[in-house]
Simulated assay, not measured.
Amino acid sequence: MTYVSGTAPPGATALMCENFAVTVPQPSQQRSGAQAVERALAVLHCVEATDDSVGVTELAQRTGLTVSTAHRLARTLTEAGLLRQDARSERYGLGPALVVLGRKAERRLGYQQALPLLEELAEETGESINLGIRAGNEVNVVLDVMSSQPLRFNQESGTRIPLHVSAMGKCLLACGDIDAEIEGLGDLDRATHRTITDRDQLRAELELVRERGWALNDEERNPGVRAVAAPVLRPGGGVVGAIAIQGPTIRITDERLPELAALLGRTTKLVAELLSAPRD
């Protein structure tokens, strides 16, 4: 078997789209530029969350906006190249300008420079490797290296995972104020029977992650899959992201965890030094 893969301020209504939260003030509140930006982001992220394309009526339903507002924002984003519209179906997809922006961001942030280190880690462990960064209450996978094993688990770049069901997410949460982080997560949705949905249990888990320096996802998102992750820490303080080793439970056993954690510690240190180095 192969596996492939906000809280609103007072007086505001929180719109959710595929786990991406934005806040949209009620119509009675004073209209502002921030409101327009929040609504545009809601539209953009709803399109991003679909595998193909989305129609304006569906877009309005998912964001909680009126059809006319959703249509106006989608047209504006299309004119800017952030979305594209199919001439025949009139459905919206991601636009070409995002490719340019993504490549520039990737180059300037330096993530691609870490790929050889992730490939080396994949070769040493025989498992799939991810580098993820935080995006709201999710982990956004920015780099992935697929295992060469026929039985494997892989998460492609661009995949988004709720923080509480991810080993990388636990690392990112443990690097902050744990109580505040848990409070800001909202509902802890269950993905499998092993998902941590109790806040006290999650707090204890994050304290353990902080103490030992690495996190374990023990079939909490996908049955039969385990992941071990460690944070990529900035030399001057703070966290850049996290790196995970993931694979089937038959290979990522309890006996292997110390070895994998040690390999992660070495790799995350090298990646942190690489990403913090000055770039032209």
Score class of each variant (00 low, 15 high):
residue 8 A to D: 09
residue 9 P to Y: 09
residue 14 A to I: 06
residue 17 C to D: 05
residue 18 E to A: 15
residue 24 V to K: 01
residue 32 S to P: 10
residue 33 G to L: 11
residue 33 G to C: 06
residue 41 L to R: 13
residue 43 V to W: 06
residue 47 V to P: 08
residue 54 V to A: 05
residue 56 V to F: 01
residue 56 V to T: 12
residue 66 T to E: 12
residue 73 L to D: 14
residue 76 T to C: 09
residue 78 T to I: 03
residue 79 E to K: 12
residue 84 R to C: 13
residue 85 Q to G: 01
residue 87 A to G: 03
residue 91 R to E: 14
residue 99 V to D: 05
residue 103 R to G: 12
residue 104 K to H: 14
residue 106 E to F: 03
residue 114 A to G: 10
residue 114 A to S: 13
residue 115 L to V: 06
residue 121 L to Y: 08
residue 129 I to N: 02
residue 138 E to N: 15
residue 141 V to W: 00
residue 151 L to R: 14
residue 158 G to V: 10
residue 165 V to H: 00
residue 171 C to A: 04
residue 174 A to H: 03
residue 174 A to V: 02
residue 177 D to Q: 09
residue 180 A to L: 13
residue 182 I to F: 09
residue 184 G to M: 01
residue 185 L to G: 03
residue 195 T to D: 07
residue 197 T to M: 08
residue 200 D to R: 12
residue 200 D to Q: 13
residue 206 L to C: 04
residue 206 L to V: 11
residue 208 L to H: 11
residue 218 D to I: 06
residue 222 N to Y: 11
residue 230 A to P: 10
residue 230 A to I: 05
residue 231 P to T: 00
residue 231 P to M: 00
residue 231 P to S: 12
residue 236 G to L: 10
residue 242 A to I: 05
residue 245 I to C: 04
residue 246 Q to H: 09
residue 256 R to I: 04
residue 256 R to W: 00
residue 259 E to G: 07
residue 263 L to K: 14
residue 263 L to E: 07
residue 266 R to T: 14
residue 271 V to P: 05
residue 273 E to M: 12
residue 275 L to Q: 12
residue 277 A to N: 07
